[in-house]
Design a protein around this nucleic acid. Structure first.
Lengths: 117, 117
DNA sequence: ATTATATACTTAGTAATACAAAGTACTTGT
DNA sequence: ACAAGTACTTTGTATTACTAAGTATATAAT
């Protein structure tokens, strides 16, 4: 199953950023929480290692689509870094979803023999 | 529109190989023909430059999903390299489509708030 | 006849990303 | 005390879409 693993990796590219933005749409979340929700809500199809997620978050922050702040640890001693979506991030999320669906539907035309679906 | 261009590039990754295989499913074709059909059938969403397509074809050939042969130029003097899908290629195409749709649907679950679609 | 455009294939270099792997550090369960 | 889970960071690798340039022939325009 090596070949399919390779293609799966490639097919996820670009989509992960969109999914992370989506999870932050209504609520601030921290890294590990994002990994858990992504895994659970995607039927385990999107099961990220930390080394995959955190670079995505740093990138989104560079692009000013999210902002982060460290939590003041009250009861729990482990500091957490919370990520929230920005106004720019919300707008970009809308554009990304449109783009993503458009790419899918146009590819689907070819996969179904130039038929609209 | 720089950011969206970047994401569009990423979101196409992996999908192009599948689309090229699909176009070869029923008929041998040559490079330029593939570019034309891909552009036309995808509503111009997939408009490849030669420098994008040919490396894909070489890769598919390395993976033994397609085979190529030069045409004997009879009337027309320009030699063409025709690509045809192999048996392995046909099977891989089926698996790629399944994988691609699965990734899309599981991502869609997240994009629609953990709803099945 | 010369120029431009289209066809047809090739190659080198760049930017970007998902992932593996390893590391640091704290907390909880046994 | 030890293992396992939580939480974040960093480095290195493989892969791919794209730009750009190059080679070459055929056809249409000036």
């Amino acid at each position: 199953m090596f070949l399919n693993d390779k293609y799966e990796t490639q097919m996820k590219k670009g989509v992960l950023d969109m999914l992370v933005l989506k999870l932050l749409e209504n609520e601030e979340k921290y890294g590990y929480q994002i990994i858990s929700e992504l895994k659970e809500k995607s039927g385990e199809r999107f099961t990220l290692k930390e080394g995959t997620l955190y670079p995505i978050l740093y990138r989104l922050e560079d692009e000013q689509l999210v902002v982060s702040k460290w939590s003041e640890p009250e009861g729990k001693k482990v500091p957490r870094k919370y990520y929230g979506i920005t106004q720019i991030g919300k707008q970009e999320l809308l554009e990304l979803e449109t783009l993503w669906r458009d790419i899918y539907h146009n590819a689907a035309k070819i996969m179904e023999g130039s038929q609209d679906e």
